[in-house]
Design a protein around this nucleic acid. Structure first.
Lengths: 348, 348
DNA sequence: CTGAAAGCGCTAACAG
DNA sequence: CTGTTAGCGCTTTCAG
């Protein structure tokens, strides 16, 4: 079924059919009704490719999830409790606004080219990139070519430097520095002095923010950081497990740990349990992200929640506004985090 | 940048550019190389809409996730530990085969029309539908119109009846009846007689299979089923919680429960814990699906694992084969489940 | 208000 | 082996 057939049946021209489909104002109610009836009767749907080729938008946004980690694990993302939230939220928000979502996963540096490809092939009107590494350049270039891009978990300041003329870039994130500082302050307020850090991948913005906040806060309180208590989990389960096992082997032990995300905190807790180290009696731990799992495990994990849903919703909304040319420019939004106290931290 | 410009620069015609893009055999190495160089130099990517309109495939499959549940919960899917696995697996498998994935969520009966729309608009070459309700007809009609469709968690027998001439339908699932029977047998072998059922939504195929297997197995062993021990959780957290709370109020209690999925089992366990009912000392429980969370909670949940990844991989592979016209016809595949014994079942 | 006609960027006969 | 040409199904001027 194509618009020409609809036109013939309705006794009008293709143009008129097109006009009613696109809701033009200058078509009389009668004609409109007549055409609509035929369309509905024959279950006609316009061919998207033809519409796009003729100048319409695609009404689809690309969701790019960077998951450069655990490359030896065939299940990768599959096991990542953090990103799945983004997929769900993005699809839900976009669908609610009449947009489709093309989901892409970036497993390796090489995959970054996929991003530009998808744009260049005009498969999408705009894209959201999450959890990105340093390869911001690729994305900034894409946006400079006129394609709207929303970046989540990115250093807005650094981008602002290079962007200058960028009209299609939206940077959205949470105030992780403040959130992490607050968590460490909390641990300190509980009387902890020997505090360890389970650090995330420093090539991510959030990884760096949480890392720096930890050291700054410790310093602010005149607390020494024992190098042996700095574990580089890099947001990767297997790495985290190795680092924690190493720590357990040592003859000294922190009384509390600030973990840069919940996944790593949970991995550590499992290992603690295996080794009869009690949380929070023997060691306190606080995570970051407030993934669904964190409230389900026992003891329930104290953590810092980032408003994932709000962030994604903002990303989708702003991206669509940019696509529709309502709102061009460089925008930067940042959301506050919130400490969620549960059962894994106790007074020293 | 369009193919004509590439042609001009490379000193050939558009057709030749098209030929090298589509890897035709009748292009001499030299010409090919020359064109490829220009393409790569200018970072040219063919416009997908134009290609599709000219008769090429879209190289994208639609993933439709039915989530008719908890409609009052704004986070819906977001909290569903089962479906996220499907999204990840599907994207990974499809990407690996050079296909893109358009993810759609079906929240209500009305959304079923979205499925046909996406097909009719030619946004996708084929679709995978998961967790479907009775509205199979919509999908079967879609496939009858020539669009390849893969159905996961569907009653293949029932479909076979109506399909007869269907050439584009693939039905994939796991042998849930056998898996559920095995789980109940296990509970019985542990000495349990008063066994309860946490039933899933009976409008899903898996929900029905697991339900029937429970009753059949109990009957086979001459065991009575107490009506008060049949809880209709419908795969929905809030409903499950209500049913379990009701049960706890009663003066009689089963010594074991077979839960039609892990999510409901975990909800029940949380309630048991709140009410000082110990698992597995006071009550044994076994779930279904083996979601990631089930191994993380304590006590770790005994369950029946379905090979999600295999199922999705098969769905993607077969769907693509059908799209590429290598393999037309009606196909039905079913995978065995596997009991995973952990810590929630004990001898009566 | 509405039809005719051009054109979006590509592929695929067809001819040479 | 390669260029020319005719669409693919739609939107959008441009006339009327």
């Amino acid at each position: 079924m194509k618009s020409e057939e609809i036109a013939k049946i309705a006794g009008v021209s293709r143009s008129t059919v097109s006009r009613v489909i696109n809701n033009y104002s200058n078509v009389p109610e009668d004609t409109k009704k007549k055409v609509l009836e035929v369309i509905s009767k024959y279950n006609y749907q316009p061919n998207t490719s033809a519409r796009v080729l003729a100048g319409k938008q695609n009404d689809t946004i690309g969701l790019f999830i960077v998951s450069i980690a655990d490359t030896d694990n065939p299940n990768r993302l599959y096991n990542n409790n953090y990103f799945t939230q983004f997929v769900d939220a993005a699809v839900e928000c976009a669908n609610a606004r009449g947009f489709y979502v093309l989901v892409n996963i970036i497993y390796c540096e090489n995959d970054y080219n996929k991003v530009s490809e998808v744009f260049l092939q005009k498969r999408i009107d705009g894209g959201i990139v999450i959890g990105t590494e340093r390869e911001a350049d690729v994305l900034i270039n894409v946006s400079k070519r006129g394609f709207p891009v929303a970046l989540i978990d990115y250093d807005a300041e650094e981008i602002k430097k290079n962007k200058s003329d960028n009209n299609n870039l939206i940077v959205i994130g949470s105030n992780d520095y403040e959130g992490a500082a607050q968590a460490v302050e909390y641990l300190i307020s509980l009387g902890h002095k020997d505090i360890g850090l389970l650090a995330g991948r420093l090539s991510t913005y959030s990884g760096r923010q949480r890392y720096e906040a930890f050291f700054d806060t410790m310093k602010k309180h005149g607390l020494e950081v024992d190098k042996d208590f700095i574990l580089h989990g890099d947001f990767i389960k297997s790495k985290t497990a190795n680092e924690v096992k190493n720590l357990i082997q040592k003859d000294k032990f922190p009384s509390a740990i600030f973990s840069s995300n919940d996944d790593m905190a949970i991995t550590a807790m499992d290992l603690f349990k295996e080794n009869n180290i009690k949380v929070p009696e023997d060691i306190s731990i606080i995570g970051f992200d407030n993934i669904p799992l964190s409230s389900l495990i026992r003891p329930a994990l104290s953590t810092v929640s980032t408003p994932v849903y709000d962030i994604v919703d903002k990303a989708v909304t702003e991206l669509i506004a940019n696509i529709k040319r309502n709102k061009k420019g460089f925008f930067n939004y940042s959301y506050d985090t919130k400490m969620i106290l549960r059962e894994t931290c106790s007074r020293k």
